[in-house]
């Protein structure tokens, strides 16, 4: 058993990683809650946004934190167009069909990335993000501290916007009752596309927060898609507080799994958590309906 300090460091590291998972999961849960789309392309789109962040830094020297609004905005536009052009047009009827459409999308994106960027792993070296910050007995890289704070701030802003703005109200109305929303004059298809766009914009923001302390390769998407689904299922599909709790829980499970079981076997925690939640409590910790 590792010492208390190491365990504490593991937990804090897990919480820091978890904050970014929260952001990824908020996008996924929003898309599910509003559109009832299980977006299997979520990981692949995150991978794409990570490449965008990487190229902005490597080719144009743009600091990933400064790039955040740009990448998030670009991701929103991509999501909006993808919904209008592909997902929304074809993904009708049975829910397996929607899953298969987004699987097809992820196959295309993953392999297009492999074709264009090769399979090499890419990292960026942001000097100011590597510096260590001291918290009592703990030292954390600045990149993780920033990611933690920024991810939570973005989630809070999104929650506030959903509660207060007209578009946010329209999204919630459509999620609750599509026919009724249409009757009171809401452009439902536009709201769907906006929701999908916001879900993908969350990935753009997450990519900028991840890249300074992480790496990207065309298979990154696959690594993240299971994490994202585990987070969302753990918290309950469609639930925002669920995504928040789920993200932190998964971050800590992953970090402690690696610490206690070793790097190889430690990865098993996330998949096992996913299976157990689905088998024992498929509505998740916060979900009421399914």
């Amino acid at each position: 058993m590792p010492s208390f300090d190491i365990l504490l460091a593991g937990i804090v590291n897990g919480l820091a990683a978890g904050a970014v998972y929260v952001l990824v999961a908020v996008g996924l849960t929003l898309i599910y809650g509003v559109l009832h789309i299980v977006n299997f392309a979520h990981g692949s789109l995150l991978m794409l946004a990570m490449y965008a962040t990487y190229f902005l830094f490597a080719k144009a020297g743009v600091d990933p934190y400064a790039a955040l609004p740009v990448v998030a905005g670009g991701a929103f536009a991509l999501g909006y167009v993808l919904y209008r052009g592909v997902v929304g047009r074809f993904a009708h009827g049975k829910d397996e069909n929607i899953l298969l459409i987004t699987l097809g999308l992820s196959i295309v994106i993953d392999n297009l990335a492999l074709f264009l960027f090769t399979g090499d792993t890419q990292t960026i070296d942001v000097a100011h993000a590597q510096r260590m910050v001291e918290f009592g007995p703990l030292f954390l890289p600045r990149a993780k501290v920033i990611a933690f704070a920024a991810a939570l701030a973005i989630c809070a802003a999104l929650g506030l916007w959903m509660a207060r703005s007209d578009t946010g109200k329209a999204i919630r109305a459509v999620a609750k009752e599509r026919q009724g929303a249409r009757l009171v004059g809401i452009d439902v298809d536009h709201v769907f596309a906006v929701s999908y766009g916001i879900g993908i914009a969350c990935l753009g923001a997450a990519a900028c927060l991840l890249m300074p302390s992480f790496y990207v390769s065309p298979s990154s998407g696959h690594a993240f898609v299971l994490i994202a689904f585990t987070t969302v299922v753990l918290g309950g599909m469609g639930s925002f507080p669920g995504a928040l709790a789920g993200g932190f829980a998964i971050g800590v499970i992953e970090s402690l799994g690696g610490l206690l079981l070793g790097e190889q076997l430690g990865q098993i925690g996330i998949s096992l958590a996913f299976i157990l939640v689905l088998l024992l409590r498929p509505t998740g910790l916060f979900g009421a309906r399914r």
Binding site: V38, K94, D95, E96, I98, L99, L226, F229, T230, V233, G262, Q264, L265, Q267, I268, S271, L272, F274, I275, L278, L279, L280, P282
Partner: peptide
Amino acid sequence: AGLRGSYFALVTLAFAEVFRILANS
């Protein structure tokens, strides 16, 4: 457990992942 549709698809993916990690260790 009553898993259908997307949930069944995702849980099979997770089982494969568990087997991969076990075989790896």
